[in-house]
Nucleic acid binder design. Structure first.
Lengths: 219, 219
DNA sequence: CCAAAATTGGACCCGCAAGTCCAGAAATCA
DNA sequence: TGATTTCTGGACTTGCGGGTCCAATTTTGG
């Protein structure tokens, strides 16, 4: 996903076309690696101890860097770093569901995806780095909002594509509104995860997925 | 809900049987009022400017109190106050849905409840004091977890009761698992709210409610 | 190999917000 | 009323964490 062969290209650093102020104009090989290390280290640190408890000093210690490097690569400071971490984690959310999410072409495939999602969040346990980070820098921040909106858009799009495919196979009635059903299912997943984070129980996530998929199946 | 007639009873202050360290053993009339004022002021302040940006000094200013009073009523400091605010907000979540939530006895009633929920969160806008507070003091905190668990339990219970009532009327097939369906619907609502908080769009909440209720209705 | 630019280290600053303290005012109760 | 407890005000301390600075060092490109 990363590893863009040619180095020292004069490209702004924010990947995937996100705009925004992002520091030095060019980066050497070493600089790029350091920057990457900082983002991943920060993400890991946040996953372990939570956003609120993670300080720049923790990140510095874990990544073996210094304050000046942090601000060299992220001139806007903590906020910018957190935003970068949010993007990093948002990428993970979707890629962790592949290839199942991109292949909703039969009922067993849907089940496999459902299991994958449940497993992912079971494994992740009681911490959601993304939601934590987003909450921290405020939902109203345009950057944070953009990251979440884009994630939701893609996620919902993949589910809707799966629904349409099943409609093509005649397994789901054509009258059903794929986008609306996908939105509802996605909401169920989000809520299931949220309840799990807050209470430690995964039952709601399973219920949301199972009931949601059953709802599609019925015709 | 409050206003417990007899004053100066030797009861611990935490209402509704929540345990935990809660400060002075007894409170006079005035003290009780001040304490109440602090919690409500803190809740309001948090609703307006967010948890992360709310300091004890803001609370102090808004409630016309002093630092010493804050620590007099909440010896464990900010954490204790936040927990109290969380309880306060959790109460509001359910009471704001009444009487509709407690009267899911016909399809129009379900629709009225659905509208009430959508309206409540539209009105509330892009801030969720409860989720903010919970995120702040960490989901793992036993106190926070207890508050959310209890809220979810009650909420789901009311929905499930509504489903059972409709089953009694023959409007929903008896085979349907009321608790599981209620869990799924609740998850959808939670996720819909979450998406709204993050993206500003209410479509997911509406979709979750509508699709969820339609799923009950079909038989 | 040299100049320029990128990278690194870490000491330092500063403001803020949580929490402490104690003395004085007000309420309670005998 | 007077003794006792609760309540209130606000000045003070303290630690922490984000952010700045600059000089040293490495890397890059010619």
């Amino acid at each position: 996903m990363l590893s863009n062969g040619a180095l020292r290209e004069n490209h702004p650093i924010g990947h995937r076309g996100y705009p925004g102020p992002v520091g030095p104009k060019t980066l050497t090989q070493k600089g790029l690696a350091t920057r990457q290390r900082i983002v991943e280290g920060a993400a890991a640190e946040i996953r372990e101890r939570g956003v609120a408890e993670t300080t720049l000093d923790h990140v510095r210690a874990r990544t073996g860097t210094s304050k000046s490097q942090l601000f060299h690569y992220f001139p806007d400071g903590k906020e910018q770093l957190l935003l970068e971490v949010a993007r990093h984690e948002a990428d993970r959310v979707l890629s962790d569901q592949q290839p199942q999410l991109g292949d909703l072409t039969s009922w067993p495939a849907w089940q496999a995806w459902r299991d994958r999602v449940v497993d992912r969040y079971l494994r992740q346990g009681m911490d959601c780095p993304l939601s934590g980070v987003i909450a921290q820098l405020g939902r109203s921040t345009p950057g944070a909002q953009a990251v979440v909106s884009e994630l939701m858009r893609q996620w919902q799009g993949e589910i809707a594509a799966g629904i349409r495919h099943m409609q093509g196979l005649g397994e789901i009635v054509p009258a059903l509104d794929a986008d609306r059903s996908a939105a509802a299912l996605l909401a169920g997943i989000q809520g299931g995860v949220m309840v799990m984070l807050a209470t430690g129980r995964i039952g709601h996530l399973e219920a949301a997925l199972d009931v949601g998929i059953e709802g599609l199946r019925r015709r």
